[in-house]
Design a protein around this nucleic acid. Sequence first.
RNA 1: CGCGGGGUAGAGCAGUUGGUAGCUCGUCGGGCUCAUAACCCGGAGGUCAUUGGUUCAAGUCCAAUCCCCGCAA
Length: 308
Amino acid sequence: MKIAFLGTPEFALPSLDMLERSGHALGVFTQPDRPVGRHAVLTPPPTKVYAEAHGIPVFQFEKIRLPEGVQALRAFAPDLMVTAAFGQILSAENLAIPQYGCINVHGSLLPKYRGAAPIQWAVINGETETGITTMLTDVGMDTGDILLVDRVAIGENETAGELFERLSVLGAETLRRTIAALEAGTLVRTPQNESQATKCPMLKKEHGKIDFTKTTREVHNLVRGTNPWPGACALLEGEPLKVHITRLSTLDFGSAPFGTLKGDAKTGLFVRCNDGWLEIVELQASGAKRMNAKDFLKGHPLVGKLLA
RNA sequence: CGCGGGGUAGAGCAGUUGGUAGCUCGUCGGGCUCAUAACCCGGAGGUCAUUGGUUCAAGUCCAAUCCCCGCAA
């Protein structure tokens, strides 16, 4: 089958790799190269790097729904489109091009967590289960008919980054089965239950701001869900402090204002939240590299100070 | 050349107007103790990122270079 693969970041790579190994004729449509990092180095998206290494043609458009993109897609003449974390909205015109339509690989159990950052929000909200849904893309935001679903449990300490990696691998498998069913003519379409639908917003920097009036579990979930990006952060004496890893703890340092720090270089660093004390395992001060909280304590007397 | 912080003992940090290199933790040895991750005493461990310059004297002042990181995009 001739497939137009629309995907951008690492999440899309296992799916792309699966399609390549399955011998489909591929074309990769992805976002333009973007400036990355402190020195704004123009960096190609991972799917482009993969495609070039495997001799797959690459097409990059700012907006594929604009005439230029539509024209290129039509010229490529795919039988099927596949999207995985593409990051652009497709138009009806785009979707009408391939005869089999467009299959999207989505990192949630639809109709829950429609939108841009389903994996992170599932962790932030403390979900214990998520998964991969393949769906037939329509013009709405993740509203198309459901094809196949695979479920996975979310670990108590699992970070969004770790879950991302697991789901990207699972996504390739779910996609493989979906296409196999399509080719066998056994694919079943199930409309989404609109009454169960939830939407999650794109994750922004400010979503990482920790609120210590919340419970230890809620803060822990935020730290996990924003790791590795954008990272959870708080203010220590006016300076930003990133909190990379936390652990739920049963240690009790008594009552104290929310955000109060306790502990030492041996037992670890703990911060007061609404219902108890959360251990901060790994952190990063402004200008410093990330380190163990215990190491940080050796050179920074923090006990009694306040995080805000 | 977007703004900014930083490279000092194994780890995390301090080091004031240039004048013998310090703290906490770890480590090693000894002591105390029923015992200990606790406490006491002692020891080892540094080309102060690199190169050049100023000076009687540079971790400290000047210049250049390399590396790490935060913010902004």
